[in-house]
């Protein structure tokens, strides 16, 4: 009486096949990527050392390390952050706290979505036309940071908006009923309670900035601009009106523009760049997981 009919057996078989297929598809994404990353590290191992990180590229980049591009990437990231974080966070506040649900807000959020979708190379053309030529910044750290800021703005806006939306509306209502104004409510109640989400978005944005190449290609990055290896000048070597080196561009240069670079050095540069980014975004993900588990409401 309880034995299954052939039809039921078939249904169960199909379900199993579907589950296994979905599992295999997921593994097909995860496993090769982990394998490739492991392979990169193995190939880079002989060249990886502290000296590799702390030395300038030397001898037409055929030897030496990655200090100058590393510092350049740091400068780029911080300057980009200083420009885009305030604008992005305030824009996120506007969209979640001030904007009404009307056609204009729809246009604003459509603009955010589209800004996120504009190809990075078009951002580069825009940066070249707007910052390098029209505003007369020339090929410089500042022009590259401005270009990068426009590009990363949507990431910050979207994550800020999501973080703010996660704060229950009852918190705001309680505060308004105490007689607080909008901005007072945001400053004292909404922002402290959504700081974690905003911070995560900002950190993820940093990791994106560190890896991008195309937008800085014509706006400020150069093949070679060495920095001092000791003293104060080795920490803050580039002034905002100068071109600079960056990790992502350095990897591109080593691969396509310079001949005679050993494969170990190329692999080591790639691993250093991926390592830097995984460190930053891993930190952001860790922070988010920790904060999710420690949420107070």
């Amino acid at each position: 009486m309880f034995s299954s009919t052939p039809r039921e057996k078939r249904r169960r078989k199909i379900e199993r096949i579907a589950a296994v297929t979905c599992f295999l598809f997921t593994m097909l994404l995860v496993v090769p990527v982990l394998a490739i990353l492991t392979y990169l590290v193995v190939r880079a191992w002989p060249a990886l050392s502290l000296d590799f990180i702390l030395e300038n590229p030397q001898n037409l980049m055929q030897s030496g390390g990655i200090w100058a591009p590393l510092v350049g990437t740091f400068c780029l990231v911080w300057l980009t952050l200083a420009i885009s974080a305030p604008i992005g966070i305030l824009a996120g506040i506007y969209l979640n706290e001030y904007a009404r649900d009307n056609w204009f807000t729809r246009v604003v959020s459509l603009a955010v979505v589209n800004l996120a979708g504009v190809p990075s190379i078009v951002h580069a053309l825009f940066g070249f036309g707007a910052f390098v030529l029209t505003l007369g910044m020339g090929k410089s750290l500042l022009a590259a940071s401005c270009t990068m800021s426009v590009m990363t703005l949507p990431v910050i806006i979207t994550s800020t908006r999501e973080a703010l939306a996660a704060v229950p509306i009852s918190f705001r209502m309680a505060c308004w009923n105490m007689g607080a104004t909008r901005w007072q409510t945001i400053r004292t109640i909404v922002l402290p309670n959504s700081m974690s989400g905003i911070l995560t978005g900002v950190i993820l944005q940093i990791s994106r900035t560190a890896g991008e190449t195309a937008p800085i290609l014509f706006t400020g990055v150069v093949f070679y601009a060495p920095v001092a290896e000791s003293g104060f000048a080795s920490i803050l070597p580039y002034s905002v009106d100068q071109p600079f080196m960056a990790m992502s561009m350095h990897l591109f240069t080593l691969m396509t523009q310079v001949r005679g670079v050993s494969e170990e050095m190329q692999y080591a540069t790639a691993v250093a760049l991926v390592g830097l980014i995984l460190l930053i975004s891993g930190g952001a993900i860790g922070l988010r997981t920790w904060l999710r588990n420690h949420r107070r409401w």
């Binding site: 824009a91 506040i93 506007y94 604003v108 800004l115 825009f126 703005l153």
Partner: peptide
């Protein structure tokens, strides 16, 4: 004034999209 600033930043993304189109 802070509300004005927030609104300006909110509208900035429209401005940036238009500027990208304009400059390119």
């Amino acid at each position: 004034s802070i509300e004005m600033l927030i609104r300006l930043c909110g509208w900035s993304s429209i401005l940036f999209v238009l500027m990208i189109f304009f400059f390119v």
